[in-house]
Design a protein around this nucleic acid. Structure first.
Lengths: 117, 117
DNA sequence: TTTCATACTTACAAATATGTGGGTACTTCC
DNA sequence: GGAAGTACCCACATATTTGTAAGTATGAAA
């Protein structure tokens, strides 16, 4: 009677799809890639990722934190000092995301040429 | 004087980011994964990907076609017969996307547990 | 003393993504 | 004869995402 034993993103009802959406979201992808190089503070992360608003960065970080990809460490000082880094699982997915991005970067010339046709 | 010699998704102005968005879009991801198993017709693709509307499937396919990841082959018969499959470049990115999805599927239990906390 | 930086939050507005329902021109199956 | 399937497109409506601007408490630098 057990349904959906194995997760499947092609299945409408599988919760894996939601997680995939977080990871592949516009800014989620970039956060994971940016954190690959190590721990970063909020503002540093924001400067690193061209074009993010504070709002979107916060939101993306929250989602990735909830899913267990990113770890947030707040030092209770004033002015605030908060650090973000990847969890072991986060390192895994970040690697995959980065591989994808790198693949696109490597073939960008070809892609742009194709588009022009 | 040459700027932006190497593509970089973290750079706001780099066109690679747009391509990345197409590939990581809600349905784009699933189209690439679904086409990994081989050629599929429009309706078959739609049945394969739970929850897509015709409109979104069409739009996603167009974008992926423009970027050179998907190939569309229309046979001029009535009723229409159109086939979709991956280009060599499409096979590459689909593999990366699939690896990412598989990674999430494999760790879904852990992720869901983390979320519940 | 005014400004800047930190790491956010909130309200509001705008942009983008997505869904819905209808139409098309046929053919085949029942 | 009627229904269903094919691969879409179009107009319209709604949902979701994203951006903008302002506010917060405080310390340090100019």
């Amino acid at each position: 009677m057990a349904k959906d034993l194995t997760p499947d993103v092609l299945n409408d009802r599988c919760p894996s799809r939601q997680v995939l959406n977080h990871v592949t979201s516009r800014w989620g992808v970039l956060v994971l890639i940016a954190l690959q190089d190590g721990t970063l503070r909020f503002s540093a992360l924001r400067r690193r990722i061209g074009g993010v608003s504070e709002r979107m960065l916060t939101q993306s970080l929250r989602l990735l934190e909830e899913d267990g990809f990113v770890r947030r460490t707040a030092h209770p000082v004033v002015p605030p000092h908060v650090e973000y880094d990847l969890t072991p699982l986060g390192v895994e997915v970040a690697a995959k995301v980065h591989a994808l991005a790198a693949c696109i970067e490597d073939n960008l010339a070809q892609i742009m040429a194709q588009r022009a046709e």
